[in-house]
Nucleic acid binder design. Sequence first.
DNA 1: ATAATTGCAAAGCGTTTGCACCCTG
DNA 2: CAGGGTGCAAACGCTTTGCAATTAT
Lengths: 155, 155
Amino acid sequence: MILNLISAVSYSDMNAAQSTSEERLARAGLRATRQRLLVLETLAAEPHDATAQEIYARLRQSGEPVGLATVYRTLSLLGEHGVVDEFAHRPGETCYRLCGEGHHHHLVCSRCHGVAEVEGCEVDEWLGKAAREHGFAPMAHTLEVTGLCAECQAA
Amino acid sequence: MILNLISAVSYSDMNAAQSTSEERLARAGLRATRQRLLVLETLAAEPHDATAQEIYARLRQSGEPVGLATVYRTLSLLGEHGVVDEFAHRPGETCYRLCGEGHHHHLVCSRCHGVAEVEGCEVDEWLGKAAREHGFAPMAHTLEVTGLCAECQAA
DNA sequence: ATAATTGCAAAGCGTTTGCACCCTG
DNA sequence: CAGGGTGCAAACGCTTTGCAATTAT
C-alpha cells in the first residue's frame, strides 16, 4: 500500500527533507488523499525531475494507478502550494521535483538528466548592482546549469 | 573554460544588434527568403520576446502573411543557427528573441513582460567552485530574473 | 536547373475541462 | 454529511509533418 519511503533528499533541514508525505500535505493545508500521497512518494523516489506523464507511467506500472488528469491536477496544486518545484527546461512539458528547503540551484546533466542541488548562490550581490542601474526591482531568479555529471564524463 | 554558447555565432567584427536581416541570414549560411526576412524584422521590432503564434499574428495583420508552419520552422531554424535566442519560461510555448552578442542575462518584468539585457555576470566564479565539488562539468547556464521594471513599479 | 522552402491541412502531443461518482475531514 | 477530489473522455492549444507548388541560388 502506501509506504513512507525514505526521502532521497537526505541531509540538512529537519523540517522538510525528512517530512513524510502526509506532513507535507498537512503543512500546505491540503487533503491527504491516496492519489496525492502516491504522487508525492513517486516524486520522492525519482532520481531527477519528472513530468506528469512520467509520474503517471510509474504509478501505472506500480500497480497503483491514478488517473492522468489527477496527476496533472495534483502536481499543479502541489506546485502552487510550494510543496514541489516546477520548471520548464523542456519546451512543451513541465517538470516537477521535490526539492530541499532554502534557496538553491540545479546542475542538470544533459546526458542522464540527473539533477544535483547546489546550496546558496552569489547572484544577489551582482544582481543588486545590475538591477539598480536599470531601475529594476528583482523579485525572484532562476539559475540553471547544464553540463555533464561525474558519471557521464567518464562514459 | 565554462561557457560560450554565443561565441560560435560570431567571428563578426560588427555588432550584430546593428546588422541587417540579410546579413544575419548570410552569416548563418541560410537562404534569404521573403518569409525569413519578415520574421526577423518582426522579431527586431518586438519590445520583448515573442512566441511563434505572436509573430504569425503580427505578420498577418501587417498585410504580409506568412504560413504558420513557416513561422515555426523559421524560428526553430534561426534558433539552431544562433541567430535568435530561444527560451521557455512559459510552459507550453517557446519564446524567441533577437539578442545582442555576448554573454548576458535577462531582467523580465512580470507585469509588462518587457525584457532588459544585462551584460556580463559573475556566475562563473561561484559556479566553478560549486561544480568542482560535485565533479560536474558545466557547459552552459541560463539566469533569468523576474521582477518589476521601472515603469511598472510606478503603476 | 534543382535542391531548398513554403503553404495548407491533417495529425501529434501534452495538458485542461465538464460532469457524474467517490471519499476525506 | 457536505464539499472537495477523482476518473473518464472529449476538447484544447501549441507544434509538427506530408506533400504538391513555389522560389532562391
